[in-house]
Design a protein around this nucleic acid. Structure first.
Lengths: 169, 169
DNA sequence: GAACACATGTAAGAAGTTACATGATTAT
DNA sequence: ATAATCATGTAACTTCTTACATGTGTTC
């Protein structure tokens, strides 16, 4: 999902600032399935404002840059709706892990066990993070997304634990 | 995984051409977890040749551009090994689907059922494709990767089938 | 006094995609 | 005849990240 749509989507859930959008994608319920840097968020918000898809009101602060609080306009809501209406392009299964595994067989087979062990730890950590997020989250769709994430990570972890020996020998 | 490493990795499995690398990532066992276009593959091969990580021999053909067959050099093998040795950066769970689902709740809830139905179909199709690939594949690591893929797709599909009603009402 | 949180923004560069350009051969 | 397969390559563009720039207040 491009940053523009991501910003529109987050604003559909409530008014907020660029700084807080970054926090949501870095730590919040969004961090599981999206990412974005300031360098993409701020310009996106500026552009969306110019196009009339979002509004910006400024909250003056002392000894800090003024806070810019954005909110979705009617046009923005329409635009978001439109981009959700035509089917999202299929998710890619790009995986550094699987690629590394496949190539390690030919070039450094002794690395395979490590790779799998690291990956199991990674899934374990992700499950922990998702459960923490789930405990804090009350939105229906957000909980669904986090549960989906947990199920996926657990399935992956289980598969690796059950089949790790197949590639060792 | 960047295109450079992907090319080195594929060449670690055997000599081949840019054209065939593209076919592998578009249709072969690699298509599940990677992607690349000619516009990135050809320049990458040229650059890797300049750097001495791969060799190029030309096979003359009539009525076709000459075929350029690349092979990994010792230096290339070292470089690939090195990039597999430091832990791959964690896979991202970027998902158009999950993002769309989350935002649809706020902006067009009537779309949620469609989204889930489409996604179930998508998983179904992916499982079919993976099983076809698996039937043709004999490499140990490649089979492992494809089985991993099947397990993931099935887990996702099952989750959606079992929980689809949670978001309808 | 060092590091982090708050808060915005820009410029340079990485990495890739898309679309084009070329052109013969083979299958439908 | 029309499309697909074979085979290479380039140029323009998109999209995003990284690193910088700025500055205060708070916590360790």
């Amino acid at each position: 999902m491009d940053i523009r749509t991501l910003c529109l989507g987050i604003l559909s859930l409530g008014d907020t600032t660029g700084y807080d959008i970054k926090k949501m994608v870095a730590e919040g319920a969004f961090s599981f399935f999206s990412e974005a840097s300031y360098g993409s968020i701020y310009p996106a918000l500026t552009k969306l404002t110019d196009e009339g898809l979002i509004d910006c009101r400024t909250e003056t602060q002392e000894s800090r840059p003024d806070k810019k609080i954005y909110s979705l306009t009617q046009a923005g809501r329409k635009a978001l709706e439109a981009s959700l209406t035509h089917a999202p392009k299929p998710d890619r299964n790009r995986s550094e892990f699987l690629a590394a595994l496949l190539f390690a067989e030919a070039v450094s087979p002794e690395r395979i066990e490590d790779l799998i062990a690291e990956r199991i730890d990674h899934h374990h950590a992700q499950i922990g993070m998702l459960e923490t997020l789930l405990a804090k989250e009350s939105g229906k769709a957000a909980r669904f997304v986090l549960q989906y994430g947990i199920v996926m990570q657990e399935a992956a972890k289980r598969f690796l634990e059950e089949n790790r020996t197949d590639l060792g020998a």
